[in-house]
Design a protein around this nucleic acid. Structure first.
Lengths: 340, 340
DNA sequence: CATAATAAGGAAAACGATTTCCTTATTATG
DNA sequence: CATAATAAGGAAATCGTTTTCCTTATTATG
């Protein structure tokens, strides 16, 4: 017998098929303790596991969660994905990781697939759709999920009414900017993520706020955009050095950008933190092993992914009750120095 | 009508349900061209997509491929995962990414889950099982897959008889070592990946071979093991510098190790490539933006993952016909200098 | 031309679970 | 004590496909 089915378990336990189903799926239909024990023993003896396809077909949900991200090979999303997959695994279920590659059309297509696969929950990790297209295209998808009973959780503000798990990105941008200001810096540049990514814009907004509050915003803030990669950070700083090289500090939208910034500064003969202080947001696992150990604001990426799965698995209501803001914490290392 | 089923399509096309099934699942049962067109039009008109659960239940395979890796947040595996997910997506199917976190027990548990989910194909990307435990535990799993008709492809030599897609790791280790030797280095250390990872050992073997062939192996080769991470590379070099600091070149098992090596050397006041030359295997996307642009042997990670999916999707035979060795290519950048 | 082989399609069974509905025994309620 | 409510379990329907089996019309074959 290569596949053991619920029928085999029922036969072995000497009960009917529905009774087995009630035990293993934690149904509300009552089952006596003695019967339950018999079933559980049979399950253990046969090493039975319910067939996901059959379950999905009848109950209209498969025990699968899906994570939508821009790029799985970016450790930033990798950490989130790790939190998602490992937590899903703890629940005994599997997870899809969907890569949009920053292409909004892919995200729409993924939603079609996820619908087709009857996944239980969807985690919107930032597929790359801009706010506007989200509101048009995605909202109908989300509406469909909601009507159908699928659980949708966002890891980034989507401008849509739904459960979310995230950090306060504006506060994060403010925090790292304030830190440089406290250290005596006034000429502070900001290398942001893409202009169509909500998270990036919020962090940038925090920088603007902090600079303004300290009277440092004279309408000539040094801001460059990148694609959240090493390369992007490198190129942004190169460009910045061409036109306005007078900064003493750089705030980076995330750790990847900071790594590229290091490289660009080194090429120009500038040292960190000797000539320029660098700070960023993320605290990826390797931040302390960077060329100069990176001072950065820790974002609990793993925990974000993990919590999102818990929301999907734990809550059986349709109410939007999970709005969780995770705390961040500044990790002071060696990439920032006091000015003068 | 929230979900459109095959019955709706059949009704719209004016044919029977099995006929629709034959068209969409490319059955060998003949269907006339006119009928086929009618069906395809109805499918398009209703935006119909077959239900994966129903398909899986009846046909005993779900259109899902699974990738087993050690750590998805490591860009090395991230690149492979990207190749897998994007290629799967091209085929209109989804993929599971399974993270063992270097814990062999997890890999066994994953195989149970994958069996339960009736996945079509499994890609063994190196879950962290040592060769011995593989031969004992995994071989029975693989045997079960094979009997059942699932397709299994390995990305690393597993010591088992199965399809594989990989690079010649021994040649890779040899290649980078030879390169340093050609550049005049003789005191060359090697920082390897873990001792229970087949790939790592093969690369190390290549180093030993190259050193021996050039009469550089006097039984005192400087070898340290790490866990393939920045941190691991950092700590391995720190340890090496304590006992035998006389090397002028370091070969690294992969790019992550090299990044940690950079950091450790810098802490000791050693420059790259001024005091020490560093070379590695991998060529991750950020290798050219490292502190010193990294000379490294390119491994086509994305292509490895991509090809594995193509094997799963393309071949319907049970024969082990796909044994593909991908080519590598040395990327000369700035981390190696000629000695004297 | 008679007959076998093939093409084209449909009816019904099957996959393995969950769900609905029903029955019987037990407990609560006035 | 009679009756309603609940507990506990089983029979059968169901989910949406694929597969098997069957029928009929058409084409090949000697």
């Amino acid at each position: 017998m290569i596949r053991v089915s619920i029928e085999d378990v029922a036969a072995k336990a000497g009960v009917s098929v529905p009774t087995v189903s009630r035990v293993i799926s934690h149904s509300s239909h009552p089952v006596s303790d003695t019967t339950r024990q018999k079933v559980l023993q049979a399950v253990a003896a046969l090493d039975y596991r319910p067939d996901i396809s059959a379950q999905g077909l009848r109950s209209s949900f498969t025990n699968i969660v899906a994570l939508i991200t821009r790029d799985i090979s970016d450790p930033y999303f990798g950490e989130i994905a790790r939190g998602v997959t490992e937590t899903a695994n703890k629940y005994g279920i599997l997870s899809f990781v969907c890569n949009t590659g920053r292409n909004p059309e892919n995200e729409i297509e993924y939603h079609e697939l996820l619908w087709q696969y009857r996944v239980k929950g969807i985690i919107l990790g930032g597929g790359g759709l801009t706010l506007d297209s989200y509101k048009k295209e995605l909202s109908s998808q989300v509406e469909r999920y909601r009507k159908n009973g699928n659980k949708v959780v966002a890891l980034a503000p989507q401008g849509l009414d739904m459960d979310y798990v995230m950090i306060d990105n504006r506060a994060a941008g403010e925090c790292i900017t304030n830190y440089l200001i406290q250290k005596g810096h006034e000429k502070i540049a900001y290398i942001s993520g893409p202009q169509n990514v909500y998270t990036a814009l919020e962090r940038l907004e925090g920088y603007r706020l902090a600079m303004g509050r300290h009277g440092l915003d004279n309408g000539d803030l040094m801001i460059a955009y990148s694609d959240n990669s090493w390369k992007g950070g490198y190129e942004a700083v190169k460009a910045l050095l061409e036109c306005s090289p007078e900064f003493t500090g750089i705030c980076c939208g995330n750790d990847n950008i900071a790594m590229g910034v290091f490289r660009a500064l080194k090429e120009h003969g500038l040292t960190v933190p000797g000539n320029v202080s660098v700070i960023s947001i993320g605290d990826l696992p390797n931040a302390s092993y960077a060329d100069t150990p990176l001072t950065t604001l820790r974002v609990p990426l793993y925990e974000l992914g993990s919590k999102a799965v818990e929301i999907i698995m734990g809550s059986d209501t349709n109410k939007y009750n999970a709005n969780i803001i995770f705390r961040t914490a500044l990790r002071e290392r060696d990439s920032v120095s006091r000015l003068k």
